[in-house]
């Protein structure tokens, strides 16, 4: 019996780049940077995925979508593995992904401004925390204000633009 020809790893990455995030469908799971590794273990394709937030309900849907997309491309045996460490960071969102977020109306994470860094600084120095400037994805104004730390999904905060007056989502740094 002839051995089935295994698709190349590059092809697999390409297929994965077509799996959209279920909650923000303009970006793919590879844009998000949550697929950490793809490798063959014999005839089984092992896809290593890291969660964005521990309790994000999209995680289960993402796993199902990945499996379905790979099966559609003829891969019979797929195993999904969860990797926690190193923990996912918004720095892993690709440049393309950031552009897609902005044009979809979601402000991309401002680099180096995770709450953790601000808090650690405050605990060490016990004063202040860096002010965060999030620009409006619609008009580009820097005159924006935070409405709530938590938005429609775990990964987003709610903001409002004080120039064009539009509310918008901010993909917060972690």
């Amino acid at each position: 019996m002839a051995t089935a020809i295994r698709p190349s790893i590059a092809d697999v990455w390409h297929w994965l780049s077509q799996v959209p995030d279920p909650e923000i469908p303009v970006i793919s799971v590879t844009d998000l940077g949550i697929v950490r590794n793809v490798d063959w273990d014999g005839e089984t394709l092992v896809v290593t995925v890291t969660p964005t937030y521990s309790g994000c309900p999209a995680t289960a849907v993402i796993n199902l979508d990945i499996e379905r997309r790979l099966k559609e491309n003829g891969i019979e045996s797929v195993r999904l593995e969860r990797q926690l460490s190193p923990a996912w960071t918004t720095d892993w969102i690709s440049a393309e992904g950031r552009e897609k977020l902005e044009s979809y109306g979601i402000a991309a994470p401002v680099e180096g401004s995770g709450a953790e860094g601000r808090l650690l600084k405050r605990i060490e120095g016990l004063s202040g925390g860096a002010a965060l400037t999030v620009s409006c994805p619609r008009c580009g104004s820097a005159r924006t204000e935070k409405v709530s730390q938590f938005g429609s999904t775990p990964c987003k905060a709610s903001y409002r633009c004080r120039d064009c007056l539009e509310p918008f989502d901010y993909f917060k740094c972690i």
Partner: peptide, 18 residues
């Protein structure tokens, strides 16, 4: 344990800030 703590502390930072 270190792996879970690394993940969770990023989330908890937002809880505390709020």
């Amino acid at each position: 344990i270190a792996g879970i703590a690394e993940k969770a502390s990023k989330e908890v930072a937002y809880h505390l800030e709020r």
